[in-house]
């Protein structure tokens, strides 16, 4: 099944990433992202880019944007261009098609995130080059590295799975894009409002306890908790999307 998902993923990249924008457009677009986020901003920030805690994972929205560039096309594009039925009539299993589509967005966005992260480290080290650079290589602490690599992956899976579910239920790419954009616009403020609302109704003692915990936080337990919660949500969403991806129902949509 993984071999089949790989085949779907490669087709998706070739069709959507490289042919969708044209080869030059794709290389230009991705190159620009690496230049801006991997070179220009880190060069301007200097060592702060590495020494300020959590600076790296403030780009959490980067994989979100990259996923959105690809994922709307995954099923809505196949439906719009009348290729979905042929794909469903092939020997590919439901799981292989679904995982291939999600993986196409995840591997692309997460790969770009890692590339940008490595480029930014190189840029900062080069920009503050010392006489003996190898003895003073600037690296993130393990918390930031974990944030970029592990949480970046889990967050990308989260975005990709939601995107694929929206695309599954959309008739056209335009509709899928619109739904994703609207969802994004509404979702983030809604989460912020919900958290603020929950916080405001908590007893004063609990509020103080929370504030104290944030100020004296231990990165290990916090990262472990976030990782566990994200893994759980990802698994739940993958299960939900597999329930939505049923050949019989797709033919009727």
């Amino acid at each position: 099944m993984l071999a089949d998902s790989w085949i779907v993923m490669l087709k998706e990249w070739r069709e959507v990433l490289f042919r969708g924008m044209g080869m030059r457009g794709s290389v230009g677009f991705f190159g620009l992202i690496v230049l801006v986020f991997g070179v220009a901003i880190p060069a301007r920030s200097g060592t702060y880019w590495i020494t300020i805690p959590w600076s790296a994972i403030t780009w959490a929205w980067l994989p979100l944007m990259l996923v959105m560039a690809v994922v709307a096309d995954s099923f809505a594009g196949e439906r719009e261009r009348h290729t979905l039925e042929t794909l469903l009539a092939s020997r590919l299993s439901d799981a292989a098609i679904l995982i291939g589509k999600v993986a196409a967005a995840v591997v692309f966005a997460w790969g770009m995130l890692l590339l940008v992260a490595v480029m930014s480290l190189l840029t900062v080290n080069v920009s503050v080059m010392r006489p003996d650079p190898w003895s003073h290589v600037l690296l993130w602490r393990w918390e930031e590295t974990f944030g970029v690599v592990v949480l970046g992956l889990l967050f990308t899976v989260l975005c990709a799975t939601i995107g694929v579910m929206v695309s599954l239920k959309s008739e056209t790419v335009r509709q899928a894009n619109l739904r994703l954009s609207m969802g994004l616009i509404l979702f983030l403020p809604a989460v912020a409002l919900a958290l603020a609302g929950i916080y405001s109704v908590l007893p004063g003692v609990v509020q103080l306890g929370l504030l104290d915990a944030v100020q004296t936080w231990q990165p290990g337990p916090v990262l472990f908790t976030i990782t566990a919660v994200l893994t759980l949500i990802d698994a739940l969403l993958m299960w939900l999307s597999s329930r939505m991806f049923v050949r019989n129902r797709l033919m009727l949509d």
Binding site: E15, T86, R91
Partner: peptide, 18 residues
């Protein structure tokens, strides 16, 4: 059945960007 069959449905089902 799908593994042993070929199908040309209502539309050609070809990827036009490939």
């Amino acid at each position: 059945i799908r593994a042993a069959s070929g199908a040309l449905m209502e539309h050609s089902g070809l990827y036009e960007r490939l």
